[in-house]
């Protein structure tokens, strides 16, 4: 066999573990999930065909509607705000200067904190009696709020906690900003462009492809990262105020052993996220100059 052929063949051997892993851990489970969505299955007896029954039942379920609404509100609260904050931080910290490493590390740190620890920290911060947030409010003369006990504040409070975990997007935007050649700014400044004009006509369009990536990734992450905080901080309460789709799927499948319904919910979640991504891409994809990615 020729060296070249043999070489390419061995490249595929190096790829084999990753590819087989994707098949076993992602593709087959995804197909399995889709198939199960049309059955009733409790994990013990064999699955029985139910057609579209699961989907019909779910759509009529008030809890499902509540979970979808909560998840959408959560996305609407977190994704735009977090995108703006991330971009602001990246703009502030993308140039190399003294002490920059410390500042960047501080911004990234909440992102590496393990989910359970992060949720417990916030559970304490938001505690009406022992938590520092209300002590801070008291000190400024504001009334204490039982953040996680009040059905109106529980969801916004969890959204607030999610705001600080923006490290992944931050790093991507830093890289994006560093790819913009300084000459662009120099020549625009010579033409007398102000800071705002520089941002609108150079920075934003050039960083847009990165921003789009960050937004799409953030949509996916925010659609599922509610599980741990909701389970630890509120168990979905009070009065289902923080029942998000992932927690609802978990309860349906693993607390009540309704795998068929769980699979149908999973299908909904997947299609919902895909639809959101498609809409975002439609809305924002045309922006900016596309040559930089």
């Amino acid at each position: 066999m020729k060296y070249h052929t043999r070489y390419n063949l061995s490249l595929y051997v190096l790829l084999a573990p990753f590819l087989s892993g994707i098949v076993i851990l992602v593709l087959i489970p995804a197909a399995l999930s889709l198939a199960l969505a049309f059955t009733s299955y409790d994990g013990l007896s064999a699955p029985g065909w139910r057609g579209l029954q699961n989907f019909r039942q779910i759509i009529d379920d008030d809890l499902f509607r509540r979970a979808v609404a909560n998840s959408l509100v959560f996305l609407a609260l977190t994704v735009p705000l977090r995108t703006v904050v991330t971009l602001g931080l990246a703009l502030l910290l993308h140039r190399s200067r003294r002490g920059i490493g410390l500042y960047r590390a501080a911004v990234y740190i909440p992102t590496v904190i393990p989910g359970v620890a992060y949720a417990l920290i916030w559970l304490w911060i938001l505690n009406p009696i022992y938590g520092p947030l209300n002590l801070l409010l008291n000190a400024t003369g504001l009334p204490a709020i039982a953040w996680l006990v009040n059905p109106h504040t529980a969801l916004p409070a969890i959204a607030l906690t999610a705001l600080f975990q923006l490290g992944e997007g931050f790093v991507v935007l830093l890289a994006g900003l560093q790819h913009i050649p300084d000459e662009y700014y120099d020549s625009a400044e010579l033409d007398g462009a102000g800071q705002l004009a520089l941002f609108r006509h150079i920075t934003l369009p050039l960083v847009m492809p990165w921003l789009l990536l960050v937004i799409m990734r953030d949509l996916i992450a925010s659609a599922q990262n509610t599980f741990t905080p909701a389970l630890i901080m509120t168990s979905g309460g009070p009065y289902y105020a923080t029942l998000f789709l992932p927690l609802f799927i978990y309860q349906t499948a693993f607390d009540r052993f309704r795998f068929g319904e769980g699979a149908a919910l999973t299908t909904f979640l997947f299609l919902g996220v895909a639809a959101l991504i498609a809409v975002t891409y439609r809305l924002l994809g045309g922006w900016g100059y596309d040559d930089s990615v």
Binding site: L25, A30, S33, Q224, P246, T266, T267, L269
Partner: peptide, 9 residues
């Protein structure tokens, strides 16, 4: 792919 969609299968 949201990892949540893969828990059950």
């Amino acid at each position: 792919i949201p990892i949540t969609a893969l828990w059950l299968p």
